[in-house]
Amino acid sequence: MIARDPGGAERHALALAESPLQLLMTVEAVDAGHVRGPVAVHARRGVPGLEDAVRAFGTLPLPPTLDLDVRGHVRSTVGGLGATTLVLGDAFSGRAQALLAARDRWGGRSSGNQCRVVVVDDGLATAHLARVLASPGRLPLVRLGTPATQRRDALGLAARDGLLRRAELGRLRLVTAFEPPHDVREALERAGVRVARARLQWAARVAPAVGGRIGEPVVVVGSALVVDGLLRREPYLAWVRAQAQHGKVRYLPHRREDAGALAHVAAIPGVVVDRVGLPIELRLAGLRPPQRVAALPTSAIALLPATLAPGVRLDATVPEAGWWAPGVDDDLREHLVSIVRVAG
């Protein structure tokens, strides 16, 4: 039977995935029933690690309504503008905001033409999105640390207004593993945003069969803070070196770490650099006690407990003041390290 909206239109969803984590959380949202009907997942071409993740996911038992694709852009001919539901992993993405704006221009702003929007996790960006939508002020959806421009602010304001307009109609859902603070959640609910907890149940089911074996006693989750210019390289390498003081370490690179950055890591005695592939929530499911995982602030701190075996320790290190690169302001630092408290 074809799924239809109350108005009679055939129901189908378009999901835009711009990172392996967004891809994983989209699958989770479909598996949990937050997105119904046929779902076309379009993975952005050229994103490090994403095409590998799409190929790996294609070998897994995906929800039957979900179809994976890799394209450089989303075209109306694949249902982007006619979709009755949009699934977005990063509401701060210019591409996602442009798609939302195009959908509004195509369908108009009357209540009957407002498609549903489901926002899935993309790490700390989701926590920041919750705060922006809950704010009494009219704040643009612009990523923290991004230089302000008139065009970017205008697009961010339009995206914010479009999401809250849908919230008033009961057509905005936030599916996240990060529990918003009580005051933020109350403000979201007053605005009409439906908040659902992402529990990674699909990942927990499939992970034991796909994680693979890692023999080293310690796994270090690579961070993009250095290549993003937020953390100094020397203290970061010293932190990795400290993890290898008492035995070998398997280093799982962040997808944005380039060959130059990884060469510094690989030169540390006892460190074996892995390849980018499956999201670490799946990759590390095969660990067993007394193995442990070490990480700097990252979304994985909140997500890994769903798939790690009982007894595998997860150690999160908050960077010391001297580790940060010059020019990183206090608000951005606080945002980046807040994941440790949120997950705890």
Rank of each mutant, 00 (worst) to 15 (best):
P6I: 03
R11L: 12
Q22D: 02
L24A: 07
M25T: 13
T26S: 10
E28H: 01
G33S: 06
V35A: 05
A40F: 12
R45F: 13
G46T: 05
A53I: 06
L62M: 10
P63M: 09
V70I: 13
V74M: 02
T77K: 07
V78K: 09
A83C: 10
L88N: 00
L88Q: 01
D90T: 05
S93D: 00
R95K: 13
A96H: 02
A98K: 09
N113C: 00
V118Y: 00
A130Q: 05
V132M: 06
R143H: 15
L155W: 04
L172M: 10
T176N: 04
D183A: 14
G192W: 09
R194W: 10
V195N: 03
W202A: 01
P208F: 12
R213Y: 11
E216I: 13
E234Y: 09
L237R: 01
A238P: 06
W239P: 01
W239Q: 10
Q243T: 14
A244M: 01
G247W: 08
P253M: 14
P253D: 14
E257T: 06
V265Y: 00
D274Y: 09
L278V: 05
I280W: 04
A300I: 03
P305A: 07
V312A: 09
A316R: 03
E334F: 14
A343E: 04
A343Y: 04
A343R: 05
G344R: 15
G344N: 15
